[in-house]
């Protein structure tokens, strides 16, 4: 589809702005002069490279140096691997080595604390720590998870606010209702400046009633027309750009100032889509939005 008003010969003679530009002249540059007195600014140092980690992780001598094999039957973890033999306490009475008689306090200071009940298993010795772990985990993971959930659900308008018994919907400090939802296709296509609409497209006009003391609070609203199959359509669509249609969303027209006013907005829908409700969406109220049904 070519532009009907376009003419190739016309374009070929278009003014070439760049060519007429005073910068385009490719005059030979003079020889480079000396460095200016101000001198060049020093370049920032190059970005930091990988920094070697100092060997600070080495276990300190008092801890490892005085570590003794645990008493037999204490259930302490023996390390696996070839060095295990030096570690594993022999079963009581079988092996030649009895490193420490039960109850004997190792003489070196800062050794691992001797368990109160040497026969108790690991689970028993650590039972309070394990019990405390549960609320700690809940505290550590709970708030971020809730935060993430709130953020995700808060992004999209997902919670409709519907009308009360009087037919008005209270949202963002204002009262609003859908006054009328009509097929305006003929109005648009038969207007003084008719809009060429492709086949299968219908125009809808929604008239909304508002009661709002502070209209600036709902001024930035977005309107969506919801169809029976759950799809939504935006107000003032690009398809109607050629038509001089006045969509004023949620703000009062200039001619009718006051706390109670009506607005109108236009939508395009495929013929197959049956409109059911108008959604008024304000991002600051997300995920709440007003869902206005006719009647």
């Amino acid at each position: 589809m070519s532009d009907p008003t376009f003419d190739n010969t016309e374009t070929a003679n278009l003014p070439r702005v760049g060519a007429a530009d005073p910068l385009s002249d490719t005059a030979v540059l003079g020889p480079l002069r000396g460095m200016p007195a101000a001198g060049p600014q020093p370049a920032p140092a190059p970005g930091p490279g990988p920094v070697p980690v100092p060997g600070a992780w080495e276990p300190t001598a008092p801890t490892t140096g005085t570590w003794e094999p645990p008493p037999p039957g204490s259930g302490a973890w023996p390390p696996a691997g070839p060095t295990a033999g030096a570690w594993a306490p022999a079963a009581p009475g079988t092996g030649p080595a009895q490193p420490v008689a039960p109850g004997t306090v190792p003489p070196e200071p800062a050794g691992p604390p001797e368990p109160a009940t040497p026969q108790a298993g690991w689970w028993r010795r650590n039972r309070w720590g394990l019990v405390a772990l549960l609320p700690a985990l809940a505290l550590a993971l709970g708030p971020p998870a809730k935060d993430a959930y709130d953020q995700i659900t808060g992004l999209e308008p997902s919670r409709p606010v519907t009308a009360g018994a009087d037919g008005w919907t209270e949202y963002a400090g204002a009262r609003m209702r859908l006054v009328e939802l009509t097929d305006a296709t003929t109005e648009v296509t038969a207007a003084r400046r008719p809009v060429r609409l492709p086949p299968g497209v219908r125009v809808w006009r929604a008239r909304l009633g508002f009661e709002s003391a502070e209209t600036e609070r709902i001024g930035g609203c977005k309107l969506l027309l919801e169809s029976l199959d759950g799809r939504t359509f935006g107000a003032d669509p690009d398809e109607l750009d050629e038509a001089s249609l006045y969509s004023n969303f949620c703000t009062p027209g200039l001619e009718k100032p006051g706390p109670a006013y009506e607005t109108q907005s236009y939508f395009v829908l495929p013929t197959s889509a049956q409109p059911t409700a108008v959604r008024v969406v304000l991002s600051v109220e997300s995920p709440r939005y007003a869902r206005l049904s006719p009647g």
Binding site: P59, W67, P69, P79, T83, A84, G85, A86, W87
Partner: peptide
């Protein structure tokens, strides 16, 4: 000494 060396080696290896 061997046992202690082994123990340290074990801890070191695990680390």
């Amino acid at each position: 000494g061997l046992a202690r060396f082994g123990a340290r080696l074990g801890v070191g290896a695990l680390f």
